[in-house]
Design a protein around this nucleic acid. Structure first.
Length: 229
DNA sequence: GACCAGGCACATC
DNA sequence: GATGTGCATGGT
């Protein structure tokens, strides 16, 4: 199975090239971005992050001083701004109450400990936690998102009711534990997912295994090579 | 105007 | 534990 996953990865990389994730200049920017991008298009997240940059508020100490209401206004373009402002506050409370507001102190924690700490923050679920672990802190953990579930389900790699951790385990047991590989693979899956959407072919329109129809009927038959193996 | 986007928590059964 | 719902902006 490992070679198959590697082949899919290589094929995606050949097609789309390195995706350069995560787009962000600092650990903190990546963490904030991970919350802001929850169920939200990245274009909207960029606007919100630019607002924070313009207010020179994109560091933990600065942002910690900002009232939640003000923060909500600044991140408005990212949608769900009230709840996301709260979630960012929750992270900051965790950071300052337990780690002196110092992100470097989080780096000293063991991966499972840090993951549990992040998951304990209200508003940070498995995908957001793993995105922070992989992309902000460079830890070897695979990120599972809606695209991953949809694409790999429809091609029969995982069952309809597979849980987050089951899907994550599938990838992690079938791939070398390599941060750069996990980084690029997840980014490429998202890229592939976006290609689906741009073609205006919603996955929900097709029952299980109808992916074959979509992939082979597409104008770009290379897509079928990924999953018809 | 409908549908979607790099989720999550919470209520209810 | 499974299922449904609120959260909200901006692009297609």
């Amino acid at each position: 199975m490992e070679s198959l996953f590697i082949r899919i990865y290589e094929r995606l990389l050949t097609e789309f090239g390195p995706q350069g994730w995560w787009p962000g200049d600092s650990v903190f920017e990546i963490i904030v971005g991970a919350v802001l991008t929850q169920n939200t298009a990245w274009g909207n997240v960029k606007k919100a992050i630019n607002n924070l940059k313009q207010h020179k508020a994109l560091t933990p100490p600065k942002l910690y001083q900002i009232p939640e209401k003000t923060l909500a206004e600044w991140i408005r373009p990212a949608g769900y701004f009230n709840i996301k402002a709260k979630r960012i506050r929750n992270f900051l409370e965790f950071l300052f109450n337990h780690h002196g507001g110092d992100l470097r102190r989080l780096q000293g924690l063991e991966l499972p400990v840090l993951r549990q700490s992040l998951l304990a923050i209200n508003g940070i679920g498995p995908e957001t936690a793993d995105s922070i672990l992989l992309y902000a802190f460079g830890r070897p953990i695979f990120v599972v998102d809606a695209y991953t579930r949809r694409i790999f389900r429809r091609h029969g790699f995982i069952s309809e009711k597979a849980s987050y951790s089951e899907i994550q385990q599938l990838f992690m047991t079938n791939l070398p534990q390599n941060v750069d590989l996990f980084n690029e693979f997840h980014a490429l899956i998202v890229r592939l997912g976006k290609e689906f959407c741009q073609r205006r072919l919603r996955c929900e329109q097709f029952p299980l295994n109808a992916g074959v129809y979509f992939l082979t009927s597409n104008r770009k038959p290379y897509l079928s090579e990924f999953f018809s193996v």
